[in-house]
Amino acid sequence: MTALDFTTHTIPLEGKSKISAKNVNLWYGEKQALHNINLEVGENQVTALIGPSGCGKSTFLRCLNRMNDTIPSCRIQGDISIDGDDIYAQSLDVVHLRARVGMVFQKPNPFPKSIFDNVAYGPRLHGLSESKDHLEHIVKSSLERAGLWKEVSDRLLSPGTGLSGGQQQRLCIARAIAVSPEVILMDEPCSALDPIATAKVEELIDELRENFTIAIVTHSMQQAARVSQRTAFFHLGVLVENGPTEGIFTSPIDKRTQDYVTGRFG
């Protein structure tokens, strides 16, 4: 096996950076899963993280709201900050962090509760609503922003698990945005959805960009190309290349990126 190539090609971010990762290294036990990652996630942009399985893209995404804390063997080094706030600082409240940085997973995972309660869960937990009316307003506007309101407004009290897969995923997005996060992390949000449901979620991602910063892990390069403004390509735990999405898919700089996006390995 040839030695790992640690080169990173970065075309600097234009505009404001929301999340800044500096020299991030991560180990699962003895195994190093991320090697010296330096990445800026632009505010009100969609940043796509792509790469073959096991390249570290999901691991990196999970660093951004400290989801890796739950894995006992996981050890992380380096600095990650959101708007300049160190998210690994001792004083930081992880629950508060996860309210600032919401997450949507691969498989839609609504709570076994009503549609209303699914969306109201976060605002209740964080004490965000002042009154019943206010809570209803939050639920309605979250469902509207997730593009689901018209489909569910007449059955808010039926279980969220009774919706179709695509609707469930949009419900999860509504649940994530109900607590007004600044950042939304998405880990392959469309991989369990059919093409029409996928298109709806992609349309939604593009709309959400106005108010949120989004980082999305996806196995579909076409999806990365469609929804993101910037793309970061990971390979073997190394950030190989990151820059404007168009460049990654039309004229990548690194041969590893070229080989991956053209389907020469993976």
């Binding site: 390069m221 039309t250 070229q258 053209t262 389907g263």
Partner: peptide, 9 residues
């Protein structure tokens, strides 16, 4: 094939 990069070019 949805070609990318050099293939697309």
């Amino acid at each position: 094939r949805q070609p990318m990069a050099v293939d697309l070019r």
